[in-house]
Computed example of a mutant assay.
Amino acid sequence: MDTVDKKTRSRIMASVGQRDTGPEMRLRHILHRLGLRYRLHDKKLPGSPDLVFPRFHAVVFVHGCFWHVHKGCQFSTRPSSRKEFWEKKFEANEKRDKRNYEALAASGWRVLVVWECAIKGLKDSELADLGLLVANWLKSDERYREIGKDDVA
């Protein structure tokens, strides 16, 4: 059972942003401090990646664990009401993400997914470690990678 009425739930869900989220902003700040420059939300690329590094021919997505179904993550919960609706929603999100990654790879772009849980609750020193992890990936030849909480801790 939902704890708020339909109108309130609709307002809450409508306010969930897709850009400039807290985790995305924290990652952007640390990468900028490391001297890395990027473009934001390039609509010409599949999926409008959160960060685009043309110099490295790489893109970074900062994904929310709930919306993009980060398997095994404590933040990737399933609502108990309207199960069929949510299953379809999550499945569509996963398929869309996969299509975007494949289209980017086919165009020669490298893809990094940084999960919300890898950023959430980090102290500044730990955030610097995450920034270095991303910077090292950018300089590598690795085509695809995901960074979650376990990769930073």
Score class of each variant (00 low, 15 high):
109 W>L: 12
124 D>W: 01
136 N>P: 00
133 L>D: 01
55 R>W: 02
125 S>Y: 12
27 L>I: 03
120 K>P: 03
117 C>H: 06
142 E>C: 09
5 D>R: 10
9 R>M: 08
100 N>G: 12
19 R>V: 01
102 E>W: 05
16 V>P: 03
132 L>F: 07
75 F>A: 14
100 N>I: 04
82 R>H: 14
27 L>A: 02
74 Q>H: 14
98 K>Q: 15
90 F>W: 07
99 R>F: 10
63 H>Y: 08
46 P>G: 08
83 K>C: 05
134 V>L: 06
89 K>F: 14
123 K>P: 00
85 F>Q: 09
103 A>D: 15
25 M>W: 00
92 A>N: 15
17 G>I: 04
94 E>I: 15
131 G>L: 04
147 I>G: 04
132 L>S: 02
48 S>L: 00
28 R>I: 01
139 K>W: 07
83 K>T: 14
151 D>I: 01
120 K>T: 12
134 V>K: 02
32 H>N: 13
38 Y>V: 08
153 A>T: 10
11 R>L: 13
53 F>H: 02
85 F>M: 11
3 T>N: 10
147 I>N: 03
2 D>G: 07
33 R>I: 03
10 S>F: 08
135 A>F: 03
12 I>N: 15
4 V>I: 13
77 T>C: 08
83 K>N: 08
147 I>W: 02
54 P>Y: 07
76 S>W: 05
26 R>M: 08
118 A>T: 06
133 L>H: 04
73 C>L: 07
68 H>S: 09
37 R>F: 05
94 E>N: 12
7 K>R: 14
49 P>F: 04
102 E>Q: 15
65 C>I: 02
85 F>L: 12
4 V>P: 02
49 P>Y: 07
132 L>H: 10
104 L>N: 13
13 M>A: 07
114 V>C: 06
11 R>Y: 04
31 L>V: 03
9 R>V: 08
114 V>T: 07
143 R>S: 11
79 P>D: 10
10 S>G: 11
1 M>P: 10
54 P>N: 09
2 D>A: 15
33 R>F: 04
27 L>N: 03
137 W>Y: 06
12 I>G: 07
138 L>W: 02
40 L>M: 10
85 F>G: 10
114 V>I: 11
30 I>F: 00
94 E>R: 15
53 F>N: 01
49 P>Q: 06
110 R>H: 11
113 V>K: 11
27 L>H: 04
119 I>V: 15
142 E>L: 12
117 C>K: 05
144 Y>H: 12
124 D>R: 07
51 L>V: 04
41 H>K: 02
52 V>K: 05
80 S>N: 11
135 A>M: 07
104 L>A: 11
89 K>T: 10
8 T>F: 05
70 H>T: 05
48 S>H: 12
118 A>M: 07
120 K>Q: 13
43 K>S: 14
3 T>D: 11
18 Q>F: 01
30 I>C: 05
91 E>N: 15
25 M>E: 04
148 G>N: 09
62 V>P: 04
31 L>C: 05
14 A>M: 06
44 K>A: 12
148 G>T: 08
30 I>A: 02
149 K>E: 07
116 E>N: 10
91 E>W: 06
25 M>Y: 00
109 W>G: 09
94 E>C: 14
98 K>C: 13
118 A>H: 03
22 G>W: 02
23 P>M: 05
135 A>C: 00
3 T>K: 14
144 Y>D: 01
139 K>P: 00
41 H>M: 00
64 G>K: 06
125 S>I: 13
93 N>H: 13
140 S>F: 04
64 G>E: 03
31 L>K: 01
